[in-house]
Design a binder for these strands. Sequence first.
DNA 1: AGCTCATGGCGAG
DNA 2: TCGCCCTGAGCTG
Length: 268
Amino acid sequence: MPEGHVIHRLAAEINQAFAGRPVAASSPQGRFAAELVDGSRLEAAEAFGKHLFITFEDGRVVHIHLGLIGKLRWVPPGPVAAPATLRLRIERAAEALELRGPQTCELVTPVEQAAIVAELGPDPLRGDAEPERGWERLRRSARPVGALLMDQRIAAGAGNIYRCEVLFRARLDPFLAGNQVTRDEWDEVWADLVELMPSGVSDGRIDTVRPEHSPETMGRPPRVDRHGGEVYVYRRAGEPCFVCGRGISQRELAGRKLYWCESCQAGR
DNA sequence: AGCTCATGGCGAG
DNA sequence: TCGCCCTGAGCTG
């Protein structure tokens, strides 16, 4: 259940553990032809948005996308547990990485990788991101900005938590049409993603609440979501807004649950 | 033990 | 917009 920060973090961990070294690869479940990379040298892992590419020697690339329920986890070496769901296991010495439930796990060529990346919009976690490309799409769409922020062609790597939180922090009405969003508002949203997502990578959780709004400031315990972070609106339906006290609203938008504050994020 | 839901995205209609 | 794919955690009984 990952947004881009999780994937970027995993890429760094994979490089730390395996880059430049031969690894063992297997698919106990049998749904991935792991023998094609088994025993070969893992060159590098790289993330683009929510896509993870692991390059092996001779230009073989394993493309992984976790989807909604996929998981990539480090496990202690030893016998494999629950092999029926284990799509891919990569291990070397004392480190083993297990992939379960991915939406995608396939071998691609570097050319195919480039084509997948070309379909993605700018990734706030990448230094080579071109936010202008996201803006050009956003400003041409009549769809609500709350739906557009789930579109990976506008900001690759952002998912449901970041869309809800960034809209709140910008005080933007999620139902405002993309073509009604001003350039300044887009710049603010983009800059906020660039500020928030690296913390997500280093902390392994999404924290968005500014100190002056945190319950802790009022002497109450921090209100932390199941995913681990402290957020303004995500999964807080009915609870009081940290800024104005109004109950947080919830509604489906773009196939996912949107959370927002109708007072702080009033339309115009 | 069973049911629901989850930080996604695809293809069909 | 809907159904569907993949798995497992967190509820309810």
